Simulated assay, not measured.
Amino acid sequence: MKTKIDIVRSHYEASARGDIDAMMADVSPQVRWTEMAGFPCAGTWIGPQAVVENVFAVLGKEWIGYRFELQSLIDGGDHVVGVGTYHGIYRATAKAMQARVVHLWTLKEGQVVTFEQFTDTLLVNQAMRAERD
């Protein structure tokens, strides 16, 4: 049986490969997935399909080379913390973005039941804004 930290690590490895099915393999059907206010996909999405449609599909469509680079995983029992950096180029402005991020995962009975993102939304939004004359 995979440990909680193994489940989160597997998600990040699948993300790096662009394998959505593997990313969502250990996500509860009732997952509460929260993207931080001010982030392009802000909100709380319930269920894997809502997460795919409202987070991953949007990021894939609006950003070029959008990715999360994992620096460390912290085992906190029922919680796992992923620390890393987002990278990407916003398609509409062609501006690059790099922002530090922390993900808080809660797992129960081998499934992700909640996810919450904390990031520097100003850096993300600066890449999304067109230059003004």
Rank of each mutant, 00 (worst) to 15 (best):
F56T: 06
V8K: 15
R100T: 02
L122H: 07
M97E: 01
G76H: 05
Q30N: 14
D19A: 15
K2R: 15
M24S: 07
K2C: 04
Q49L: 08
T106Q: 14
H11T: 13
G18P: 13
W45G: 02
K61L: 06
G65D: 06
L59W: 08
G60E: 04
Y90Q: 02
A130M: 02
V80H: 04
A14Q: 12
A22R: 15
A130W: 01
E116T: 08
D78H: 13
T119I: 00
N125S: 12
P48A: 10
W33M: 04
I64P: 11
V52F: 07
V80L: 02
I5P: 14
G65S: 04
I46A: 09
R32P: 00
T119P: 04
E53Y: 01
F115C: 05
S15N: 15
Q71D: 08
A16C: 11
T85E: 09
P29N: 12
G65N: 10
F68P: 00
D21G: 09
Y66G: 09
I89K: 14
A57D: 08
A50I: 04
Q71N: 07
G77D: 03
R67Q: 11
L107G: 07
L122D: 03
T85A: 03
V113H: 03
G77P: 09
K4A: 07
T121W: 08
A57R: 15
T93Y: 10
A130H: 12
R67K: 15
N125W: 04
G84W: 03
I46T: 15
E116W: 00
S15C: 13
T106E: 10
I7V: 13
M97D: 01
A94I: 00
E116Y: 00
S10W: 02
F39Q: 09
V55E: 09
P29Y: 05
S72Q: 06
K2T: 12
G77E: 02
W63C: 07
A42V: 02
C41N: 10
V112N: 05
V124P: 04
G76C: 06
E69G: 06
V112P: 06
F118A: 08
Y12H: 14
T119M: 06
E13F: 11
G43W: 08
E116F: 00
L122N: 09
T121Y: 10
R17W: 02
T114G: 02
M128P: 02
R129H: 04
H11I: 08
E13G: 11
G47E: 07
F39R: 13
V31S: 09
D78M: 05
V55A: 12
G18R: 13
L122G: 03
T114M: 02
V27A: 09
T34I: 00
T114V: 00
W105S: 03
M128V: 00
D21C: 06
P40H: 11
L59F: 11
A92P: 07
K4G: 09
M24R: 11
T3G: 15
Q71Y: 03
H11A: 08
G18W: 08
